[in-house]
């Protein structure tokens, strides 16, 4: 009300002021004006693309002519799920994602715990930067660094040789599934690289969750006679768990969709991302590529539903 009065007195841009008043008093108009550009962008470009991808997964390739048939059917999905090799790819990728998630949680938890409970001032800032910098630094450079390290003539081989432990490395590499001719072309190497790559994504949510544990709870637990170990198990761990789940969403989803690391570090056995890449590229089978890229979406959707139940989103 006061607004309209002042609007009358000011000679400058009455139109703008009236517009401002309208936006202020009709907050839903303002909301719409603000929200429209990002919503249109994400809704049309991103969601539209996703839906077109989904639609294409229901098309299929005519086995006779090799042309894409624009008809809705489950043929491509049936083809994908009936092949033993394809199921292996899915299983292999999901197991790698699971293993990487567990390893990141185990390595990441002590760092997050130290940062949240013990680090203060400069040390804390240093730790924080120490996690942020690797998270944000170049993906390819990190993969490249590991290619140097894991190479047969690289630093790991050299270290084992100088510790007279070359037999140990060879022994580990001789293990059927995870081994290979050298670390740089084995699942073990790939597992190391994946864990390295996604570790910061695990640390930050756990740290955020631990920061929120009120110290009074720990005091109460101690006052009630719990030893530090018991307090940790019964109070700290359950409260940090949503953070672990939040972090695992990142590690799991990032591993599922990656195709560069399996391509550069891995063996010749495919991961989901590589199949998608090859099918849409050289093989030209867009429907199969689309169907394959739906697999991680489904796995992640299931994962997210469970994570939501566990309260992970409050820790993001």
């Amino acid at each position: 009300m006061a607004m309209t009065e002042t609007a009358g007195r000011l000679p400058r841009a009455p139109l703008l002021r009236r517009l401002s008043t309208v936006l202020y008093t009709h907050s839903h108009v303002l909301l719409l004006v603000l929200l429209a550009p990002p919503l249109l962008w994400l809704g049309i470009i991103y969601l539209g693309s996703l839906l077109s991808l989904l639609a294409q997964s229901f098309f299929y390739i005519d086995g006779f002519t090799g042309q894409i048939v624009h008809e809705l059917s489950f043929r491509t999905y049936a083809e994908m799920l009936s092949s033993r090799a394809n199921l292996d790819v899915i299983l292999r990728t999901a197991s790698m994602a699971g293993a990487v998630t567990v390893a990141s949680a185990i390595i990441g938890f002590p760092i997050a715990y130290y940062m949240a409970r013990y680090a203060k001032g400069r040390i804390k800032a240093l730790c924080y930067l120490g996690v942020m910098l690797p998270l944000w630094s170049s993906y390819l450079v990190k993969v490249y660094a590991w290619k140097l390290i894991l190479a047969k003539e690289g630093v790991i081989g050299w270290t084992f040789a100088h510790l007279k432990l070359a037999w140990l490395l060879d022994g580990v590499l001789a293990i059927p599934v995870i081994g290979g001719p050298s670390l740089s072309v084995s699942y073990l190497g790939m597992f190391l690289v994946f864990t390295y790559m996604w570790l910061p994504y695990m640390i930050l949510p756990i740290q955020a969750a631990l920061e929120r544990v009120p110290p009074s709870l720990l005091e109460a637990s101690g006052d009630l006679g719990a030893r530090p170990g018991l307090t940790f198990r019964k109070v700290v761990l359950p409260l940090a768990f949503p953070g672990v789940v939040a972090g695992s969403i990142f590690t799991f989803s990032l591993t599922l969709g990656d195709y560069i690391i399996p391509y550069i570090i891995g063996s010749s056995r495919f991961f989901i991302g590589q199949v998608v890449f090859l099918q849409q590229g050289t093989a030209g089978n867009i429907p199969l590529a689309a169907a394959f890229s739906v697999v991680p979406i489904v796995i992640i959707a299931i994962y997210l539903t469970i994570a939501k139940r566990l309260g992970a989103f409050s820790a993001l």
């Binding site: 994400l42 996703l50 989803s253 969709g257 890449f277 849409q280």
Partner: peptide, 24 residues
């Protein structure tokens, strides 16, 4: 839902964003 829509491009693996855009 809108929050989810904003986060989705980074939450879904890059390959899905990539192939969707390419298909579109």
């Amino acid at each position: 839902t809108i929050t989810l829509l904003i986060i989705l491009p980074i939450a879904l693996p890059g390959i899905i964003t990539g192939i969707s855009l390419r298909a579109a």
